[in-house]
Design a protein around this nucleic acid. Structure first.
Lengths: 334, 334
DNA sequence: CTGTTAGCGCGTTCAA
DNA sequence: TTGAACGCGCTAACAG
């Protein structure tokens, strides 16, 4: 039944079967405003298209309109967890509502330069976790990419820094909770992976700010690896220094701290309170259940989506929604 | 300095600056075999292209050649963890070596149908986690997609089932370890999420097979939610039924079982041995450290990549590498 | 109001 | 090394 090696079905095929011109097909299928097509013709075209299984060539359309409906997200080269996954899902949904398709490119550092990637896609916009170089932004605009957004990154840059502020607030929230529950000497568990620095720096900065505002001493920073023994060493040092509460970079690091605490025969939060970030599933399954801070991914995604849509259509983006983005999930560890 | 609203740089611009025809530009830039271009001309073209920052339009190229360099991966709508992330990264690298660009689409079920997605991309191949319907496969081929691969799925289907077998082996490996360490009555911790069924079924089937071969009673299956209390109920039932070892669907479920064990004041592996799948970072940080089974993502990715590349070029794919894909990470819980 | 003709957008490739 | 046609959908201009 199915012819294996037939040509693509084009709008010309539909036109032929419907007995109309290609232009008419286009008008009907796109519901072009300002064009009046009789219900009869409409029906014939629609019918023919359905019968043939017509799918317009994205390439041709993109070529003609100079704009694709695709938004490209360049993923960071560090391991992406469920949080990023959720965020992408939400963003995808939000963009889909605007007729945009989100695709993500998993960026391994050994891969060819990102140039190759957007060249192959011709996206309407590019969203990345790290900064772009001036040259890259240059080149993308030259290639017709409307918008380039960097989610995180340091240094003066033309790309917007849409999500950096929330990251700092995450840190502040952690510190605030610890301070509010009576902790005075606080530690920070920094991740053992340079690639996470774009996230870790603003979070740590947030902790610093919060402590400063409350006139508490700055955090005792330890780099903690995802290993019970190494984490135990850090815990020992914190304990010896009179630290009673620790903000961890994320839940995984917090879990490592908890493992260290257990290893030393100590208890959380009695000997050391621990608070993470993300609320990954294992957090509530830890011993003790991990207190953590999450961001409202749905709100974040729809904000980001609005920014992208606005920028593509040349309008100014929405204001950053500062409130209610961050939530504390209080469990047992702090 | 940078003109904000200039036109795209096209091959015509390069041709003009280099003082040659567009055809020549194309030949030089693509290093078309069978064409002889003088070193001088070559140099001028290359130089002009670089000076203008020329990036060929992917859309035009795709339109003309009828084939894009993009491989689209349709992600499942369940939360993707670090394992899938790693796999995508590896696959991306492997495909990049072949000149293909991998992009992933995070598929939320509320999104528009997948049709919209490949229409917007025109990929050379589509890889998906779940099965496609006959109609979808039909439509994709009609739209010029060369290859459609379903990674998992049940039912007779034209799409290949490239990774299903390894999943069964994962289950077998879990059961084999438990059996080898003296367990006779074994439980299976099934995930509390219907969307995971495509993974869960083959894994459970693998456990069943292994037990059957060893003439042991079939697994006592419990659906365990990611919640300490509910997990404790399951553990209680297992314990009462004389089950001494449990294979969990994945590490998260295993962590839940472990939480249940602790909750009841029992100990792992003394009262109940637990073995997971994936080796997520929290696994080694659990109490006790979780024994688990992993698959060699790099090998898997390069195998999958080879399959895609072969199929795109019309050659038969490589054989499934059955050996050394699955590794046991033995820690304390089993 | 209905629908058609014609040409564009851009890289590729055959025939000259 | 080049002119010219092609792949496919969009849309301004135009004719019934």
């Amino acid at each position: 039944m199915t012819d294996r090696n037939r040509r693509r079905v084009t709008s010309a095929d539909v036109a032929r079967l419907a007995g109309v011109s290609r232009a008419t097909v286009s008008y009907v299928l796109n519901e072009t405003p300002g064009q009046t097509i009789s219900a009869d013709t409409r029906g014939r075209v629609l019918d023919a298209a359905a019968r043939l299984g017509y799918a317009p060539s994205a390439a041709a359309r993109t070529l003609r309109t100079g704009r694709s409906e695709v938004v490209l997200c360049l993923l960071p080269d560090w391991p992406i967890g469920p949080e990023v996954g959720r965020m992408l899902g939400n963003l995808s949904t939000a963009l889909a509502r605007q007729g945009l398709t989100l695709v993500a490119h998993p960026g391994n550092r050994e891969d060819r330069p990102i140039t190759e990637i957007w060249k192959a896609i011709t996206p309407a916009a590019v969203i990345a976790f790290a900064d772009f170089s001036e040259g890259e932004i240059e080149a993308m605009h030259a290639a017709g990419v409307a918008l380039v957004v960097a989610l995180f990154g340091r240094g003066p840059q033309r790309g917007r820094r849409e999500l950096e502020m929330p990251q700092q607030r995450v840190g502040r929230r952690q510190a605030a909770h610890l301070a509010a529950t009576g902790h005075r000497r606080i530690g920070y568990a920094y991740p053992d992976d340079d690639r996470l620095l774009i996230f870790a720096e603003p979070r740590l900065a947030g902790v610093r700010e919060e402590l400063q505002e409350r006139r508490l001493p700055g955090p005792a920073v330890e780099t903690v690896a995802l290993d019970p023994d190494q984490a135990a060493d850090c815990v020992r040092r914190w304990h010896a220094a009179g630290i009673t509460g620790v903000c961890a970079y994320n839940d995984e690091v917090a879990l490592a701290v908890l493992a260290g605490v257990r290893k030393l025969g100590l208890a959380a939060p009695a000997d050391l309170a621990v608070i993470g970030v993300d609320d990954i599933p294992p957090a509530r399954l830890a011993a003790p259940a991990l207190t953590t801070v999450t961001t409202d991914q749905v709100a974040m995604a729809s904000y980001l989506s609005a920014t992208v849509v606005a920028a593509i259509s040349g309008k100014p983006g929405p204001a950053v929604p500062i409130s209610d983005l961050i939530r504390l999930v209080r469990r047992e560890s702090a």
